[in-house]
């Protein structure tokens, strides 16, 4: 065999071996990835709770790390019970750095099938997570979020560019490719001196959390673009909300109730009027409890996510609103 063919084959064989090793090893790359890989089990739990004779009401907490840190499960469960829900059982789909794209396709892939329907979906979001922005991490969309039946619609409506579509398709066939963005943070946050501080400084300077080089574990990463509306490369995002409308339609068609909940941030913000209008039009309740910065100082230790005290206070405030919303 000619030597260059040997070189190419050797590299391809090594990559194939790495791909085979990566599949079982993948969840160990980060807690977040382990959480994502657990979506199948999450759907099973929802199915068991709703159909398995447990007489429980599965409640899906949909969001990102803002929701994961901002939800006090105990207080929320109690609040839902007070609102008249029978045996509420929370399940979390709250992967890091996700927004409406991952929430829409993730819901459709894991929970839109027969037998895995939650009784209620609580969608936790801040101002910019619901707009139709450029897809962040198309390779992860391909590997973890988009169902086979949605591939065509994703490529047609959401991929956005040829490069994004290629990354999506590569992520679909290769876990090595899909999880590649996890290696750098895992290595650098643990081994490069001063990296956490330096990366935070640099990402703040970039002015968009979407560009963050995120830490490997839960709880300390910056989230997708809450800082501003400017996309990587400087383009202004179009303020459209088609994905939100599709999610509302998907959830409604499966007969599940959806409530949108705004999450508190250190600074007050206002949900765009278009979102309020979509909610009004589709009769989706929206809690604006997070819009105003009413929590006392010290509730955001990393400047972005709520601490446990803040989460409990947020849930108490939400619970009082949920009563009215769920009885409607």
């Amino acid at each position: 065999m000619k030597s260059e063919a040997k070189v190419v084959l050797a590299v391809a064989a090594a990559l194939l071996a790495m791909e085979l090793v990566a599949r079982p090893f993948e969840p160990r790359l980060s807690l977040d990835l382990a959480h994502i890989r657990g979506f199948d089990q999450l759907a099973e739990r929802v199915g068991k709770a709703s159909n398995g004779g447990e007489e429980a009401s599965p409640v899906l907490v949909l969001g990102n790390s803002l929701a994961r840190n901002g939800v006090d499960a105990e207080v929320l469960t109690e609040g839902l019970r007070d609102a008249g829900m029978k045996e509420p059982r929370l399940v979390f789909m709250t992967a890091d750095s996700t927004d409406i794209a991952q929430w829409l396709y993730g819901y459709r892939r894991y929970l839109d099938g027969p037998g895995a329907k939650p009784a209620l979906v609580l969608l936790f979001t801040a101002r910019s997570h619901l707009s139709d922005r450029r897809i962040q991490g198309p390779e992860a969309m391909g590997a973890y979020y988009v169902a086979n039946g949605d591939v065509q619609s994703f490529l047609r409506e959401d991929a956005g560019s040829l490069d994004s579509a290629c990354s999506f398709l590569l992520g679909r066939v290769s876990r090595l490719f899909a999880a590649r963005g996890r290696v750098r943070p895992l290595l650098f946050y643990n081994w490069v001196p001063g990296y956490e501080v330096a990366a935070r400084q640099i990402n703040q300077g970039l002015g968009d959390g979407a560009l963050a080089d995120e830490p490997p574990a839960h709880g300390s990463g910056e989230e997708v673009g809450e800082v501003g509306e400017v996309q990587p490369g400087g383009e202004k995002s179009a303020q459209s909300f088609h994905r939100l409308e599709r999610l509302i339609e998907t959830v409604r068609e499966s007969g599940v109730k959806l409530v949108i909940v705004t999450v508190p941030l250190p600074e007050p913000y206002r949900m765009p009027e278009a979102i309020r209008e979509i909610c009004r039009k589709n009769e989706v309740p929206i809690s604006l409890v997070g819009e105003s910065a009413w929590l006392p100082d010290g509730r955001f230790p990393d400047g972005y996510h709520l601490n446990p005290e803040g989460a409990a206070e947020f849930m108490e405030a939400l619970s009082s609103e949920l009563k009215g919303m769920l009885s409607e």
């Binding site: 040997k6 050797a10 590299v11 090594a14 990559l15 790495m18 590649r180 963005g181 990587p232």
Partner: peptide, 23 residues
Amino acid sequence: AWPWRAMVYLYIVVMLLFFPPPV
């Protein structure tokens, strides 16, 4: 010899795969 070249290329491909820039 080709195995040396294959090793260097594998290093390059692995770096391209796992260490793309944040931006």
